[in-house]
């Protein structure tokens, strides 16, 4: 492998980072610098496109091409960018409000088209920049400034939308899981097609501790499972728990108890075409079954931009026009002398 000539510092812009101290976004930004250096994307071959919200400030902190756009539209802008300039690596940065409320339509259509971009979805279950309203990922009953008596609606689960839109890549991490963050960001970069990475982030100001049930140091190992392709689905502080098949569903068991052995524990296959099991894994929420982090689905598919380029090449070769006039002259014409 060619030696990588980039360091994380190559991806840092000269702008001071202005997120709140303690915000989960800081860690993700640093990890993105590291992951890009590890994969070796040249900074001038990378564009970072964001919508509106706290996380959408991220492009300013990258020494790459970047565009901080308007609320909800980053996926559409990133799509046009990638089609127009397919040599570029494109990252889209969105939050749960930007990406799944106002930008929900663009999000599902980007995933459906399988445009080769990486969507980094910061999920803190709150609108931070507008000071604390519930978001489309806030749990039912969540009390916020705009839901003083609790919300009366169910949230989206981002993974479920991705699978509903026939997504080929979905990974999840938590802001505090630095190793997993780097792993999923690098994998998203290497996947061809729309890669969706959901990162659970903590908003220290408006929603502090929203993910505590999952992220609490004492219990995190028992409430999360780090899925790795080709490896057994094992979790727990003592690595003694595993996921097994229970009819069409999943079940968490203790290895060596109730007759379960390590052989019963499932092996993670992120490349499986069918998303049936991926969806079940992604829907685990840390209560009965551990919340899954890592690369949950990573399947090859035809990308929107490659297929456009292919069609252009084919049609051009077939027709052989060199310019507009050529094309028009090949149609119905008459001459006036």
């Amino acid at each position: 492998m060619e030696e990588n000539k980039f360091t994380p510092a190559n991806y840092k812009s000269d702008q001071a980072v202005r997120w709140c101290p303690g915000c989960g976004d800081h860690a993700i930004l640093n990890t993105l610098h590291k992951a890009m250096a590890s994969v070796g994307v040249p900074p001038h071959k990378m564009a970072v496109i964001s919508g509106i919200g706290c996380s959408s400030r991220l492009p300013y902190y990258m020494n790459t091409y970047g565009m901080h756009t308007i609320h909800g539209r980053a996926a559409a802008i990133a799509t046009g960018f990638k089609v127009a300039n397919p040599e570029m690596t494109v990252w889209q940065i969105s939050g749960d409000g930007d990406g799944l409320a106002i930008g929900g339509n663009h999000f599902i259509h980007a995933v459906r088209r399988n445009i080769d971009i990486n969507i980094l979805l910061f999920n803190n279950k709150i609108y931070g920049l507008t000071k604390g309203q519930y978001s489309p990922t806030s749990d039912r009953g969540f009390v916020s400034k705009s839901s003083p008596y609790g919300t009366t609606e169910d949230p989206f689960i981002p993974a479920e939308l991705v699978f509903g839109a026939r997504g080929n890549f979905f990974a999840r991490s938590i802001d505090v899981e630095l190793q997993v963050n780097q792993e999923v960001l690098a994998a998203a970069q290497q996947h061809k097609g729309t890669s969706v990475v959901e990162i659970l982030t903590n908003c220290v100001i408006w929603n502090n501790g929203i993910h505590n049930f999952i992220t609490d140091r004492e219990t995190r190992a028992d409430r999360t499972i780090h899925l790795v392709h080709g490896e057994k689905m094992i979790f727990g502080k003592d690595k003694n728990k595993g996921l097994v098949q229970d009819g069409f569903l999943l079940k968490a068991v203790e290895i060596g108890k109730d007759g379960y052995t390590i052989d019963d524990v499932l092996v993670h296959d992120a490349h499986c075409k069918s998303n049936f099991l991926h969806q079940q894994l992604a829907m685990m929420d840390g209560h009965e079954l551990p919340l899954a982090i890592g690369i949950i689905r990573d399947v090859e598919g035809l990308t929107y931009n490659d297929e456009i380029d292919k069609q252009v090449a084919e049609v051009r070769a077939k027709k052989g026009f060199t310019c507009l006039r050529d094309m028009i002259m090949a149609g119905e014409t008459w001459e006036v002398k």
């Binding site: 802008i77 990638k82 089609v83």
Partner: peptide, 11 residues
């Protein structure tokens, strides 16, 4: 928006 992305990208 896709056109704006394409414009930024150089088309």
């Amino acid at each position: 928006c896709s056109a704006i992305g394409a414009a930024f990208a150089g088309n």
